Simulated assay, not measured.
Amino acid sequence: MEATSATLLTFGVILLLASWVQLLIVSFKEDYTWGLATIFLPPLSYFYSLFALNKAGSALGLSILGMVLIFFAL
């Protein structure tokens, strides 16, 4: 693996983890059940963020940026 792709992959994974933590905080503020769904079913929480863009839009943007970085790393 080249240094550039390893760096992109690392930053992509970091951004995905940061977006998940941010989404975890937002979803627990919204409702206890959404917070639990974020912990146990992360894909469902990103589906929730599509419908609550005013509250979780930045977390969704971070996750999209992380996925783009991971895509370019591969």
Rank of each mutant, 00 (worst) to 15 (best):
residue 10 T to C: 06
residue 10 T to N: 04
residue 27 S to K: 00
residue 12 G to Y: 02
residue 15 L to E: 05
residue 36 L to N: 04
residue 66 G to T: 05
residue 21 V to W: 05
residue 13 V to W: 04
residue 8 L to T: 01
residue 54 N to E: 10
residue 9 L to S: 12
residue 9 L to R: 15
residue 11 F to W: 08
residue 31 D to Q: 04
residue 16 L to T: 03
residue 69 L to F: 13
residue 56 A to W: 00
residue 62 L to I: 04
residue 31 D to A: 09
residue 6 A to W: 04
residue 69 L to P: 10
residue 56 A to Y: 00
residue 37 A to T: 15
residue 10 T to P: 02
residue 5 S to L: 08
residue 28 F to Y: 12
residue 53 L to N: 03
residue 66 G to E: 02
residue 44 L to P: 10
residue 40 F to G: 00
residue 53 L to S: 06
residue 8 L to Q: 02
residue 58 S to R: 15
residue 37 A to W: 13
residue 71 F to C: 11
residue 59 A to L: 02
residue 70 I to N: 03
residue 47 F to V: 15
residue 60 L to T: 11
residue 58 S to K: 13
residue 40 F to C: 00
residue 22 Q to T: 15
residue 49 S to F: 06
residue 4 T to R: 07
residue 2 E to K: 07
residue 54 N to C: 05
residue 59 A to H: 01
residue 10 T to R: 05
residue 70 I to T: 11
residue 1 M to C: 10
residue 13 V to A: 14
residue 27 S to W: 00
residue 49 S to P: 09
residue 25 I to E: 06
residue 37 A to M: 15
residue 21 V to D: 05
residue 43 P to C: 05
residue 58 S to D: 08
residue 55 K to P: 02
residue 3 A to W: 12
residue 70 I to L: 09
residue 15 L to I: 04
residue 6 A to R: 08
residue 63 S to E: 03
residue 2 E to S: 12
residue 30 E to W: 01
residue 8 L to Y: 02
residue 69 L to E: 07
residue 19 S to V: 10
residue 50 L to C: 09
residue 64 I to S: 00
residue 4 T to E: 10
residue 68 V to F: 12
residue 33 T to Y: 09
residue 16 L to R: 00
residue 69 L to G: 08
residue 67 M to A: 14
residue 11 F to E: 03
residue 46 Y to S: 06
residue 41 L to P: 04
residue 72 F to M: 13
residue 24 L to G: 13
residue 73 A to I: 05
residue 11 F to Q: 11
residue 18 A to R: 04
residue 5 S to W: 09
residue 33 T to L: 15
residue 65 L to T: 15
residue 23 L to F: 04
residue 47 F to P: 01
residue 41 L to N: 10
residue 58 S to I: 14
residue 66 G to P: 03
residue 6 A to V: 15
residue 25 I to M: 07
residue 8 L to S: 02
residue 27 S to R: 01
